[in-house]
Amino acid sequence: MKKLALTVFFDTLLLICLGLIIVLTASSTISAIKFSNSLYLFNSHLIRVLIALVAMIGFSFIPYEIYKSVSKPLILFAVGLLIFTLLFAPEIKGAGRWLSIAGITFQPADIAKFLLIIHLSAMLEKKSDYLYDFRNAFVPMFIWVVGIAGLILIQPNISNGLLIIAIALTMMFVGGIHFKHIFLSSATMALSGGAIAMIFSHSRQRILSFINSIINGGDMNLQVKQALVSLGSGGLLGVGIGNSKQNNLFLPEAYGDFIFAILGEQLGFIGSVAVILFYLVLFIAGILIAKKAQDKFGQLLAFGITFSIAIYAFVNIAVATGTFPTTGLPLPFISYGGTSIIFLSMGIGILINIAIMNSKKSKVVENDLSDKKISEK
C-alpha cells in the first residue's frame, strides 16, 4: 500500500508540474495584453498550486476515519454554501457560480462535490446491512444527491451538476445499492438534466451546435475548431514547449478548459498519450487502494475520489477533441484554476492517507497472526 501511496503522490506531482509549464506558455500572451505582465496568470496559478501541495501533504497526515463522524455537518455546510451562492454570487457570463470571500474567489460546486463523496461513503457504510431497501437506504442518499446536484444545475452549472450525479450514482452502485434503483434514477436524472440544459441558452447552444456538427456536418464552435487545429498542428512529436501559435489568442481559454489542446500542440501525439497514461496510472493506483482498504468507508471514499478525477479528465479531453459538447470543466491538476486544483489535491491527500493507514492495519493484523502461530506452537 505504501508503494501505491508513493505512486499516487509522484504521479499527481508530475501532472501538477506539467500543468505549471503548460499554463506558463498558454497564458503568457493574454497576460501581457490584459495585465501588462506576461507572468500575471502564471503567478496566480503558482500560488494556488503551492496551496494545493500544502493541502495534499496536510491531508495525507489526517486519519481519514475522522471524516466519517463529521460527514453530516459537512454536507449541510455544502448545501448552505450552494444556497448562498444562488442568492449572492455575481453573474458572470450568464451564470452565478463563483463566490469571493476576503479576496479569495472560489467555485462552491468543487467543495460540494468533495463533501458529497465523503457523505455518501459514510452513508453507504452505515446502511450496509440493508442497501437493497429502497425507502430506508436508496431514498435518503438520493435526496442528498438531488439536493446538491439540483442547486448546482440551477446556477446554471449543467456540466458540473451532471457529472456529480454520475459520480454519486456510480458510488452508490459500487457500494451495493440495487441496480434497478440506480437505473431508474439515472434515467430520470438524465431526462431532467437534459431538460434543464435546454432551458438555459448557453448550454442549449452548445448542445445544438454539437449535434448539428455531427448530423449535418455544421461548423463546430470556435473553441472546439481551434482546439482541433491546435492538436493537429502538434503532429507526432509536437512543436516544442513555448512554440504554440494557438495560444496567441486564437484559442479562447487556452490556459483553462482547453489546455489539453495546447499541450497536444506543444508535446504532440506522443506527449498527449503520455498524459492520458499518467491519468490511467493514477486511476489504477486509486482503485487498488480502494480494493485493499479494510473498511467500507475507506473503500468507497478512495473509489469516489479516484473516479471523480478520472471522469473529469475524460470529459475534458473528450471536449478538447470534439467528442463531447463544450462543458467548461478543467483538466485535473493541469488547467489554470483555484478551487479545482486545491480540492483535487485534498482528495489526493486523503487517498494517500487511506493507503498509509491501511498499510499499518495490515501490518498489525500480520503481527497478530504471527504471534498467534508462535503461541500455538
Rank of each mutant, 00 (worst) to 15 (best):
Q299D: 03
V273R: 05
V281L: 14
I334T: 06
V275E: 05
A318D: 05
V239H: 01
A227M: 12
F303I: 02
A290C: 07
I289D: 00
F283K: 00
V224L: 12
F314I: 04
S233R: 15
N243P: 03
P325Q: 07
S230R: 06
S233V: 01
T327F: 14
F258A: 06
A310C: 06
T321C: 11
Q266S: 08
A227D: 09
L329W: 13
L267Y: 11
F258V: 07
D257Y: 07
F333V: 12
I211A: 14
F303E: 01
Q246N: 08
Q266I: 09
I276A: 12
L288E: 04
L228K: 15
G264S: 08
L263A: 07
Q223C: 11
F278N: 08
G217M: 09
I284P: 01
F250C: 00
G268V: 06
S308H: 12
Q246F: 00
Y336I: 10
E265T: 00
F314G: 02
F283G: 00
S209F: 03
R206S: 02
I259L: 09
G256N: 15
I317V: 13
I259Y: 02
G234I: 05
I215T: 10
G271F: 05
V315W: 03
Q299N: 09
T321F: 10
G238W: 01
I289V: 14
Q226D: 01
A293I: 12
G328A: 11
R206M: 08
N212H: 07
K296F: 00
L231N: 07
P325C: 07
G218E: 11
F278S: 11
F278W: 10
F269H: 08
L331N: 10
N247F: 03
I284W: 06
L329E: 14
L301N: 04
F269L: 15
T323H: 05
F210W: 15
L236K: 06
V315L: 13
I317M: 14
S335F: 15
T321M: 15
L280A: 15
Y279L: 05
F269I: 06
L251F: 04
V319G: 01
Y336A: 13
D295S: 13
L277M: 13
K292D: 13
A293W: 05
P332V: 14
I270N: 06
L249D: 04
G240H: 08
S272P: 00
S244D: 03
I262E: 04
F324L: 13
K225N: 10
L288R: 08
I215N: 03
T327D: 07
S335H: 09
Q299A: 07
L301R: 03
K296V: 00
L231V: 13
I284V: 14
A318Q: 02
F283L: 13
F324N: 08
L331Q: 15
F307G: 01
T321N: 09
K296I: 00
A313E: 03
V239I: 09
V275Y: 02
L228N: 13
K245I: 11
A318E: 04
L331F: 14
A320N: 10
V319K: 01
F333Y: 15
T306N: 06
F303R: 01
